[in-house]
Design a protein around this nucleic acid. Structure first.
Lengths: 200, 200
DNA sequence: GTTAGCATGTAAGGAGTTACATGATTTT
DNA sequence: AAAATCATGTAACTCCTTACATGCTAAC
């Protein structure tokens, strides 16, 4: 059962799904995927990798780093420095597919939407569609709830109201974006064809 | 020093800053303030309240609940049910002011922007301005970073690119919103005067 | 030669979640 | 009479952060 914090696990599996990587490089890629200023600490990454390793989802290949400045003299240019490269096992592959397709609790799906979307290229069309539609449904539900709160004057403070109002606007825009993506995913023609990834 | 997770503390202090509340009601208000689907569990709330109580920032007033259905006969309508009402101490008041005005690490400021904004009515104009400008500065920095990543093709996947592109767009819109608010806060005339809280 | 980046970890602790536990009151 | 909502908590656990610790290699 998908728990809340499987975001990191999902992101790691997703990145290793195509290329094996070592921790340091993995972290840089993760910072791009997890996005928007979130910077992952090594104190999170390495224990997480050990955990995945123990669970049999990834394996470690220890190898010395090839030095960039090759010795011109003659001896094989092998440095003392070790590097641990991680790659997916079949079990890890399965787990990735499961995490991508699982419905899970809505908080989990929300927290992971960005990561899942970033890995859309590694999944099938039906799953993509399900994820997009799930996201749309959840956003719509919240939107109506926030709108109801605003109408019922649950939110009294002027600034708090302004914040919600702005929030409602951006969610409305995200819904348009989602609907376009869903249409493109279904092969339907979009009203305004911007630079949506309809023809990759 | 403001740590990452002081969000809940800030929200509790902010809500109690005007009205004393008991836990159950507090939670409902918190769900409105923390916003966008986040639902606080009692397992978080009550321990947090105990902690604040121990720290001397709030005090508990225990009292029986007045039953809604008053006994028509005669005896005083007092139920067996106890309710704990929390209110701020002067120390709590200070702490709230400090959390509102503190700069703190940028991750903290980011995580708490919404909550701080929601409590703008409980703070002074200079602090409001600092918070807004801080937020704008951080968003601009990230924006340029993400744009740089996109240009340098750090992001290869089509979907990942689309996600970033959409992210950039919404951040750009948030920046416009922020700039309008800052202008209003400074008393400058906005280009397009929508329903910004210029004249409450 | 010294700074910046590469590379991997451990220890302590904070914040919050889920699941469990209990019971009173109001509404249908 | 049953269901929903009010009301307050505890225990175990997970995830992640900060701070610490170490040393290699490339670039200036």
């Amino acid at each position: 059962m998908a728990r809340r914090g499987d975001t990191l696990e999902l992101a790691v599996l997703g990145l290793l799904h195509e290329n094996p990587l070592h921790g340091y490089e993995l972290r840089k890629q993760l910072n791009l995927v997890l996005g928007w200023g979130r910077v992952l600490s090594y104190g999170s990454l390495y224990p997480a990798l050990k955990k995945l390793s123990k669970a049999g989802l990834i394996v470690e290949d220890v190898a010395p780093v090839t030095p960039r400045a090759a010795a011109p003299g003659g001896a094989a240019p092998v440095s003392r420095r070790q590097r641990i490269t991680y790659r997916l096992t079949p079990a890890g592959d399965e787990r990735f597919a499961k995490l991508m397709s699982d419905a899970g609790p809505s908080t989990w799906e929300d927290d992971n939407f960005d990561v899942r979307f970033a890995f859309f290229g590694r999944t099938d069309a039906p799953i993509r569609l399900r994820i997009l539609e799930g996201r749309r449904a959840r956003l719509e539900e919240r939107l109506s709830q926030v709108r109801a709160d605003l109408d019922r004057s649950q939110v009294r403070d002027t600034y708090a109201r302004e914040l919600k109002r702005h929030g409602v606007e951006s969610v409305e825009r995200e819904l348009v974006w989602l609907s376009d993506l869903i249409a493109a995913e279904r092969g339907e023609p979009t009203a305004a064809p911007p630079d949506a990834p309809a023809s990759p």
